[in-house]
Every structure is written in structure tokens, then in C-alpha cells.
Nucleic acid binder design. Sequence first.
DNA 1: CCGATATAGTTGTCCCGTCAACCACATGGA
DNA 2: TCCATGTGGTTGACGGGACAACTATATCGG
Lengths: 177, 177
Amino acid sequence: MQARWLDESQRATWVRLAAVVELLPGALDAQLRRDADLTHYEYWVVSMLSEAPERTLRMSTLAQRTNATLPRLSHVVSRLESRGLVERFPCPHDGRATNARLTDAGWSTVVATAPGHVEAVRQYVIDALTPEQVEQLSTIAEAILARLDPSSSLLPEDVRATRGTGARRTSRSGALD
Amino acid sequence: MQARWLDESQRATWVRLAAVVELLPGALDAQLRRDADLTHYEYWVVSMLSEAPERTLRMSTLAQRTNATLPRLSHVVSRLESRGLVERFPCPHDGRATNARLTDAGWSTVVATAPGHVEAVRQYVIDALTPEQVEQLSTIAEAILARLDPSSSLLPEDVRATRGTGARRTSRSGALD
DNA sequence: CCGATATAGTTGTCCCGTCAACCACATGGA
DNA sequence: TCCATGTGGTTGACGGGACAACTATATCGG
């Protein structure tokens, strides 16, 4: 069963994309690690918390929003907790659930780190592209995401909806009611 | 010193791209691991060797072509060697250097694995896009790569130039990605 | 109201990647 | 010729992520 091979154009695209996927995380990690001793993923976590109402989210919600599995998040939060950036407490409304809340120290860290991180994102991605290309990339990435996450339990509209308005109505999964 | 924040369009793009970068490697790893017990990076290594003249490359060259550091490559090749897919031998012309060569078993593995991998790349990326978008993505990824690797010791023309000559004509089936 | 099942998290283990230290060979200058 | 420096690679220790097993709570059918 000979598969359909890639033509030159497709192949070149894939080689480049693979290189980006390989190198980009490391580049961002390096900047964050230097400036705040944070992993790129750790930054995502505190960043998401900083935008949530009460700076609090349920672990499972946070896991979805950061595209990670629950075990991974649990480990990361444990570390962040031991560093005093995050605190965990049981959800009052569901004995199974755990809420993660950003501490004041965590908030300070995010505020101090965000500008540098945004600058890095600009340097490596946004400023390398024309506004038109940014739009193209958005559409392209969305199409790929749809394939990667058919159930789309992640970003697409879920996050953006939450994101636009700082606090917004009571969420379905009730981070903290 | 308030940094330049991202506008909505830029931010949306970044969120999606970050998600892709986060999820794509795992998706490809899963397929390769299932079908051939290979990491995506390991596949990249044997794939590059399969396209090289004599199925042989110097470690440092191989490291560059796979966007990895030398230590990382060394570890990976050690594992591949212990599995009999690759063999190492000192370079005759430079006592410091080491060559890595794909064994027959390694070659068989690549041949057996390539179709499935290509199919996965199609499923997650290529087939999710229009031909026009594939072209756009190629340009975009190249622009980002230029920022990530200013010295460009990697892919851009280096690899492609080498690629045209080597195993390309010996075996057309060497086309992998 | 009880048991079966599903959901939410945590923990432990293994593997991979990074970093720093190190060894070996090559090359250029006194 | 001999040392200094630079380059090519390997090794070991450490840390993060994936996976599987486990605990605890919730929910639903009877």
C-alpha cells in the first residue's frame, strides 16, 4: 500500500514547520527561564490564572485551557505551590475538585514577566510576519488545531469567550461559586 | 516601560500557534511510537540518514540537520545503536569525528514506517490546509525560522542543497517527510 | 438508601532532553 | 617540537512530562 507522498511544496512546508515546532518552545523557555525561572508551560499556567475571576480556576479547567493533561498540571502546580506562586484549596461545591489560586507573589511574577515574554513572542513570531501573514497563520493554525483536537475541548471559542471580558458570567463548570 | 501588547488579532494567532506547537509533537510521537516504537526525533534521525550518501553522516552534520544539540543526538544514536538500527564508526579523515550509518535493519524500519508517518503529517497538517495555505505556511515558517536561528546553520538552503544530490537519486523511496 | 459507575486529582515510575564537565584529536604559533 | 587553543563527541546528573495505578467524592439506577 504505497501511500501518497508529499510533493516538493508540501515537503518543504513540513520541513520548515517541523523545525519551528522543534525550536520555538526552547527559545521561549530560554527567555522565561532567564528572566523569571519559569517554564513556558508554567508561564501559561500562571498567566491563565491571572486572567481568571478571583485569579482562581479548577484544576481540570486549567488543564484544558493550557492544553495539558491533569497529571502534568498537578505536578506543575505542586512546584509552583512550593515556590509560593500558587495555592490549592478544595472546591467548596464539589468535594472531588481542587481550585488553584494565584497568590500575590504569583501575581507580581506574572506582571513582572509578561512584558518580556510578549516581547519574545514578538521577536520570534509576530514581528517576523506581515499583518496579513499573521491573519493567515491564525486561520492555518486553527485548521490544524481542529485536526489535532477534534473534540475541541480546548481553545477555539471557549477561551476567547472567557478572555474578552475579564470576569463574565458564572462559568458552566463554576470555578468558584 | 510598558511593552507593546498584542492586539486581538495577534493574540488570537499566538494562542493558536502555541497550542499547535504544544500538541503537534505529541500527536506525531503517538503515531510513530505505536507503529515503530520511535520518537518523532528518532524518526527524523534515521530519516536523514536514509537520504544521505552511503546512509552515513557525521554526528555534527546530523545534529544540525535535525535541529538538535550534539549531546542530545549522541544519546539518541546510542539508543538507536543498541537497537541495531544505526552503527557508529570513527571518521577516517578526522580522528575527532564520528560517523553514523544506518544499518539494513534501520533502513527496513524507515521504509516500513515512512508511509504511516507521511499519512499522519497529511492528516494533521497538509490535508487540513488548501494548497494556497500550504504555500503561505511555508513562507511564514521560513520567516519565523530566520528569527529562531539567525545563524541559519540549519535547514534553509543547506539541507535542501545536500538533499537534491544524495540518496535522492539512489532511492526515490527515501522521501519521508 | 445502597451499590455501581463516572469524575477529579494525586502519586510514583520511567524515559527523554538539557546542561556542564570531560576526553580526544587537530591546528597554529613560538 | 611542544604547548595553547579550538573543535568533535561522549558521559553523568538532574529535571520535566507521559503513563498507569490509586484514592476520594459525586451521581444515578434500583
